[in-house]
C-alpha cells in the first residue's frame, strides 16, 4: 500500500517552493498513485526554455521502492528513450533510497538533462550522435525542445488566434483547446480529424 500521508506531504512541500525550483508535482487522478511532474529545461542546455512533463507512477512499496518515472514530453537525450521516454537513472533503480522524495528525484532528472551520460545510454542512437557529432545532437535536442516542450509558451489567446486564422470557428477552437489541455498541436490534430 502506498503511504499516502507521505505523498500528500511531499506534494504540499514540493508545490510550496515552486517559484524557486520550478518543479511541480500534481496528481493525475484521484488516487495519488498517478502523478505528473514538470521540470523546466536547465539553462545553458539545448533544453532551455522547455517545460518537460514526467509521468510518475507510485508502486505499492513507495517510498521503500522507487517511483516509476518516464518522460511524457518527447526529449532528445542520450539517457532518455526518444521513443518511450524511459529514463536511465540509477536513483530510479537500484540506488533509490526512501530518504529521497519525488522532488529530489525530479531534481536529479533535471540534473541529468544538463549532464548526459553517453557511456551508459538509454537511447543508443542519440548517444552515438552525442559522441560523434555533438553539434547535430545539440541542434536536434533544441529542435525537439522547441517542438514538444514549449507548447505552453504561447498564451491561450495567441493559440486561439493562430487556429482561427487557419479557418476554424473560434468557439470550437476554444473548447478543443480546453479538452486537450492547451496543447495547440493536439488541438489542431483534433480539429482536423473531427
Amino acid at each position: 500500500m502506498v503511504d499516502f500521508s507521505r505523498v500528500q506531504k511531499e506534494l504540499q512541500e514540493c508545490n510550496r517552493d515552486i517559484n524557486v525550483s520550478g518543479i511541480s508535482v500534481n496528481p493525475k487522478s484521484d488516487n495519488l498513485t498517478n502523478l505528473i511532474g514538470t521540470i523546466p529545461g536547465p539553462i545553458g542546455t539545448p533544453y532551455e526554455g522547455g517545460t518537460f512533463k514526467i509521468d510518475i507512477n507510485l508502486p505499492d512499496g513507495y517510498p521503500f521502492e522507487p517511483p516509476k518515472m518516464k518522460f511524457a514530453t518527447k526529449v532528445w537525450h542520450p539517457n532518455i528513450s526518444s521513443q518511450s521516454g524511459a529514463i536511465c537513472l540509477d536513483i530510479l533503480k537500484d540506488q533509490w533510497s526512501p530518504a529521497l522524495t519525488l522532488k529530489t528525484a525530479l531534481l536529479s532528472i533535471q540534473a541529468l538533462l544538463s549532464a548526459p551520460e553517453p557511456d551508459d545510454p538509454q537511447d543508443a542512437v542519440v548517444a552515438q550522435q552525442y559522441l560523434k557529432d555533438y553539434q547535430t545532437f545539440a541542434s536536434t535536442a533544441r529542435y525537439w525542445t522547441e517542438s514538444f516542450a514549449k507548447t505552453s509558451s504561447l498564451g491561450v489567446e495567441e493559440k486561439v488566434q493562430k487556429l482561427v486564422e487557419m479557418g476554424f470557428p473560434e468557439g470550437l477552437v476554444r473548447s478543443t483547446l480546453e479538452v486537450v489541455g492547451g496543447d495547440e498541436n493536439m488541438a489542431l490534430e483534433k480539429l482536423c480529424s473531427g
Binding site: S5, P63, F64, A99
Partner: peptide, 10 residues
C-alpha cells in the same frame, strides 16, 4: 514528539 519520521511522516 520532537519530530516526525522522514520516511513515513508519522
Amino acid at each position: 514528539a520532537p519530530s516526525t519520521c522522514p520516511i513515513c511522516c508519522e
